[in-house]
Simulated assay, not measured.
Amino acid sequence: MTTHADLGLDLDVSDTDAVADRRDEIVAAVRDHAGTIAYQLAKLQGGDYGRRELSTPGGTWTVKHEAGELEFLLFSPKSGSDVYVISTKQPPDPTDLAAALDDYANLVAAWNEYVASLSGVLDGVSAEFPEPASTDGVVAERDRVLGAIRQTCTLIAGEIHRYEGDDYGTYTARVDGDRWELKWDEGTVSYLRVGGSGGLYLLSQYEAPSAADVREYADSFRGFVEAYNEFVDDLESDLATAEL
Score class of each variant (00 low, 15 high):
Tyr84Asn: 11
Val85Pro: 15
Ile86Cys: 10
Ser87Asn: 04
Thr88Met: 12
Thr88Tyr: 03
Thr88Arg: 15
Lys89Pro: 02
Gln90Tyr: 14
Gln90Ile: 06
Pro91Leu: 02
Asp93Tyr: 05
Asp93Gln: 12
Pro94Ala: 08
Thr95Lys: 10
Asp96Thr: 01
Ala98Arg: 15
Ala98His: 15
Ala98Ser: 15
Ala98Trp: 14
Ala98Ile: 03
Ala99Trp: 01
Ala99Ile: 04
Ala99Ser: 10
Ala100Lys: 05
Ala100Trp: 05
Leu101Arg: 13
Leu101Trp: 09
Leu101Glu: 12
Asp102Pro: 00
Asp103Tyr: 09
Tyr104Met: 00
Tyr104Lys: 04
Ala105Thr: 08
Asn106Lys: 08
Asn106Thr: 06
Asn106Gly: 07
Leu107Asp: 08
Val108Trp: 05
Ala109Ile: 07
Ala109Tyr: 11
Ala109Arg: 15
Ala109Leu: 10
Ala109Asp: 13
Trp111Cys: 03
Trp111Ile: 00
Trp111Glu: 03
Asn112Asp: 10
Asn112Thr: 04
Glu113Lys: 11
Tyr114Gly: 03
Val115Leu: 07
Ala116Ile: 02
Ser117Lys: 09
Ser117Cys: 01
Leu118Gly: 15
Leu118Arg: 04
Leu118Ile: 02
Ser119Phe: 03
Gly120Gln: 00
Val121Phe: 00
Val121Asp: 14
Val121Cys: 08
Leu122Asp: 07
Leu122Val: 05
Gly124Ala: 02
Gly124Met: 03
Gly124Trp: 06
Ser126Asn: 04
Ser126Glu: 07
Ala127Cys: 02
Glu128Cys: 04
Phe129Val: 11
Phe129Pro: 00
Pro130Glu: 11
Pro130Cys: 06
Pro130Ala: 14
Glu131Asn: 08
Pro132Gly: 06
Pro132Gln: 03
Ala133Met: 02
Ala133Asn: 01
Ser134Trp: 03
Ser134Ala: 11
Ser134Cys: 07
Ser134Lys: 06
Thr135Ser: 14
Asp136Ser: 09
Asp136Ile: 06
Val138Cys: 09
Val138Lys: 11
Ala140Thr: 07
Glu141Phe: 02
Glu141Asn: 14
Arg142Trp: 02
Asp143Ile: 03
Asp143Gly: 08
Arg144Cys: 04
Arg144Lys: 12
Arg144Tyr: 10
Arg144Glu: 13
Val145Phe: 14
Val145Trp: 13
Val145Gln: 15
Leu146Tyr: 01
Gly147Glu: 02
Ala148Leu: 13
Ala148Ser: 08
Ile149Trp: 08
Arg150Asn: 10
Arg150Ala: 10
Arg150Ile: 00
Arg150Cys: 06
Gln151Cys: 06
Cys153Asn: 09
Cys153Met: 13
Thr154Pro: 00
Thr154Asp: 09
Ile156Arg: 06
Ala157Lys: 01
Glu159His: 15
His161Asn: 10
Arg162Met: 13
Arg162Ala: 15
Arg162Thr: 09
Tyr163Leu: 13
Tyr163Val: 14
Glu164Val: 10
Glu164Leu: 10
Glu164Ala: 10
Glu164His: 13
Gly165Phe: 01
Gly165His: 06
Asp166Gly: 04
Tyr168Thr: 07
Tyr168Glu: 11
Gly169Met: 09
Gly169Gln: 07
Thr170His: 14
Thr170Glu: 14
